[in-house]
């Protein structure tokens, strides 16, 4: 709505005042309708986003014994809505990383023969023990999770 123009118009032509008033009225009534219609529609469309936000907010994931990766291999699993990677190191310890490349968000892969974590998109490489970015475009190390082993059950938590 161009309010300035209305003011200018009824300054020169008083008969337009009523029209300006009418338009403002229509505008106000219209605004009263837009809200109650737009709000439910927004909430309706936003429901899955809200659900996935709730899922993304989880703090820990338990991995049952049967899924525990063998020595020198890795397990891919979902931490909330994101892919994660759990590596069983040769020395028997575990490390776990968020499997999302810090460059442009591709999912990275553990390569046991090369002993590294690799991103196929632009050839980024990370250290398998620390998640440090060692080659290629990634600007930052991979996000690391905390791993606890108790009674053969592995619990991964946000660090």
């Amino acid at each position: 709505m161009s309010k300035k123009k209305h003011k200018a118009a009824h300054a020169e032509e008083p008969e337009l005042t009523r029209r300006a008033l009418f338009r403002t009225g229509v505008g106000i009534v219209g605004a009263c309708y837009v809200g109650p219609i737009a709000y439910p529609v927004y909430r309706y469309l936003a429901t899955p986003a809200k659900q996935s936000a709730a899922l993304a907010a989880i703090k820990e994931v338990s991995i049952p014994q049967e899924q525990m990766p063998a020595l020198g291999t890795a397990l891919r699993f979902a931490f909330g809505t994101r892919p994660a990677i759990l590596i069983h190191m040769e020395d028997g310890s575990f490390v776990c990383f968020d499997a999302v490349c810090t460059h442009l968000g591709c999912t990275v892969e553990f390569q046991p023969e090369e002993k590294r974590i690799h991103c196929a998109c632009h050839g980024g490489t990370y250290d398998m023990a620390t998640g440090k970015n060692v080659a290629g475009p990634p600007p930052k190390p991979l996000n690391q999770y905390k791993v606890e082993v108790a009674n053969g059950q592995i619990t991964v938590t946000r660090a």
Binding site: P40, R43, Y44, A46, T47, K50
Partner: peptide, 9 residues
């Protein structure tokens, strides 16, 4: 029942 305002739409 699950989607917000879905019943209304």
């Amino acid at each position: 029942y699950d989607i917000e305002f879905g019943w209304l739409i």
